[in-house]
Design a protein around this nucleic acid. Structure first.
Lengths: 253, 253
DNA sequence: CCAAAAGTGTTCTCACTACACCCATGT
DNA sequence: ACATGGGTGTAGTGAGAACACTTTTGG
């Protein structure tokens, strides 16, 4: 491997788009940068991969999230998103970023502020960042990463129940499950029709009834939880993008 | 950027899984390695990103494919797949590989052998590599990359017409379109039902009739081509995965 | 009683499936 | 004539959309 010395190498970073739901909004965790470049700008949390320690990319993403949020990665849904490597995306030099996205349950998001050096971490609503984008300009190409992550979960939530469930507390009602879909996709669903879809998932045993009920504004609602997989089976990547009912993703011809 | 000196850095490579269809099989292009590690083993074509030249990841993937196959990237469907960065995946040291996959029309695959230094390039049937895997062991983690790529196109072919079309000549019949789906997914479809689906795409103008016919074993078949996009509109990534009807992909909890 | 929210039922449409059938061609 | 493959038609099933409706709570 001697020939590799002196060859210009790129730096390798991981960035993780962390989503949660606060009240009725999809929110993303941003960190205010304390040093140049983009000093003072908001950015997606991330950092360089510790090549010396031999950590994998997934481990690096999990470590960054733990460092910056205090959440254990085992509490999160974490998945690789896309790798961004355009020259010039970082003014310091060639930095390739393997982007991840993660989902955190809303009952855990409060403790995120307690992150170590993340004195300037804040949740921001995704709609504001995407639409106007105006007020908050993100550092580097992080607006593009955010867009990609949002497109991914919007596509994938339709056919991967765990996406929505990862944005809900351990026990949830059918209506809460619907509202997560509405918030993520930015549309409203007919409550009746959506409930039928929900009932199919219960029939599937994708979701199981807990037997308890929760008081709401009206009639008490049944509580449900995800069927815990008896053994941790592997899942596989592909799409991206999955995609979805449908992912959208970039392609060249 | 001075602090970046002396930090151990990873090497960055791109690998591209190139698919085509030969006769009735999905085939993938493999290169026989001429030097260690894995000397003599078959591998997915790829190489290091030329960081000094400032090429993007997409450009690096396109360049590698052009160098090793002689095909212009504009003739291919090329899309980023996933990034593999496990420590130990390359015995020489830490190498992160951004994997792509590409689709080449079967009427172009013959000229691939003429690649520059690719005197030992060959098409191999995907089914053989996946099933037994036995005889041909792929270098590095390329078996995993191949699996991921196959899962991606199997998921995405259902809802992205360009996948199948990129595996067909410029003009094709409805039955050929169906057979591509059958070959990629490894199943058979009812010809009648599939044809109805095909007719919907024609009604959509996703696919247009050329007006010509081709002789077959029986009645002559209508020829179709993809509707060429009037202006090159951007597409976006997401899924992975997508995917799909559906992609499958890896996730951690 | 009334508003709010949970949850059910009914009808229409559309896509997917299985399967029967006809048409055009080469031998 | 008959085999081969292209293409159409019909009936059943199941999911999604639109929307009317009942039930259970709190005030």
């Amino acid at each position: 491997m001697s020939y590799t010395y002196d060859v210009p190498k790129a730096e390798l970073s991981v960035d993780a788009v962390l989503f949660t739901i606060i009240s009725t909004q999809l929110e993303v965790l941003l960190i205010r940068r304390r040093s140049p470049p983009f000093e003072g700008c908001w950015a997606i949390p991330g950092g360089f991969v510790d090549v010396a320690s031999g950590e994998s990319l997934d481990e690096a993403a999990a470590r960054e999230l733990e460092e910056e949020t205090g959440l254990r990665a085992s509490e999160l849904y974490l998945e690789q998103l896309y790798t961004f490597g355009a020259p010039g995306r970082d003014p310091r030099g060639r930095v390739i970023s393997v982007a991840y996205y993660a989902l955190v349950r809303p009952d855990l998001h409060a403790q995120v502020q307690a992150g170590d050096d993340a004195s300037d971490a804040a949740w921001s609503t995704v709609a504001d960042l995407l639409d106007g984008g105006g007020s908050t300009r993100l550092a580097f190409d992080h607006a593009e990463i955010l867009e990609t992550a949002v497109a991914r979960i919007r596509g994938k939530i339709d056919y991967v129940p765990r996406i929505a469930i990862s944005l809900l507390p351990a026990a949830f009602t059918a209506a809460e499950f619907r509202r997560v879909h509405e918030i993520v996709k930015g549309v409203t669903f007919d409550a009746s029709n959506f409930h039928k879809r929900f009932r199919r998932m219960v029939a599937d045993e994708t979701i199981v009834k807990t037997g308890e009920r929760r008081k709401t504004g009206g009639a008490p609602a049944e509580l449900y939880r995800i069927e815990q997989a008896s053994d941790p089976q592997r899942q596989k990547r592909a799409s991206g993008a999955g995609s979805s009912a449908r992912d959208t993703r970039r392609s060249a011809s």
